[in-house]
Amino acid sequence: MLLLAFDTATPAITVALHDGTHVLAESTTVDARRTGELLAPGITAVLTAAGRKPGELTGVAVGVGPGPFTGLRVGLVTARALGDALGIPIHGVCTLDVVAYQTKTEEPFAVATDARRKEVYWAQYTDRFTRSTEPDVAHPSLISERLTGLPVAGEGAVLYPEAFPKAIGPRHPSAGALAELTIRRLQSDPDSLMFPEPLYLRRPDAVEPGTRKRVSTS
């Protein structure tokens, strides 16, 4: 097995290569404005570091968000194009699940990532493998009431300490963890791996025009 994993649903552009036993190489850069520039070179970097070629890949795992749309799409279209070009399966994993998997926490907690516009993407977990709510987007203060002091992982906890006083790591997902989680699911629960459809959770900002605006002043 040679699994390429990456996630672009947060400011971290993270890429890893996994052989089924170990993470062979990992590359992470935090720069949300340059996802389109950093992802492809990140992929060649991990392949080169591990001395492997694209043709040796047996699968691709990609974080499907939720996350800011533009960066998220870079990851998803890259995964779909690689899958098509190499004729290999592509697996989608909820980005919040990756952060949850990285917490190493045994007690219930939540994950919150930055959704911009003073909101977070979030979900609740009973343990690091088990999500108990559907991913959603909301204002931190509204979630805070429901969480009643639970620990919160992800950048949302760092950005909104008043709403989430009990911040735990990690801040961003890591592609090494995404690869590990994907391999676990391939072995235990392959149905939980989805075709990579983006979790936008918001509709496009667009308003249907009303009556025509007049240009005459009278």
Binding site: G36, L39, A40, I43, T44, P54, R73, V74, V77, T78, A79, R80, A81, L82, D84, A85, L86
Partner: peptide, 9 residues
């Protein structure tokens, strides 16, 4: 991003 992925692959 798509074109880069095809070129890389």
């Amino acid at each position: 991003a798509a074109a880069k992925a095809y070129a890389l692959a």
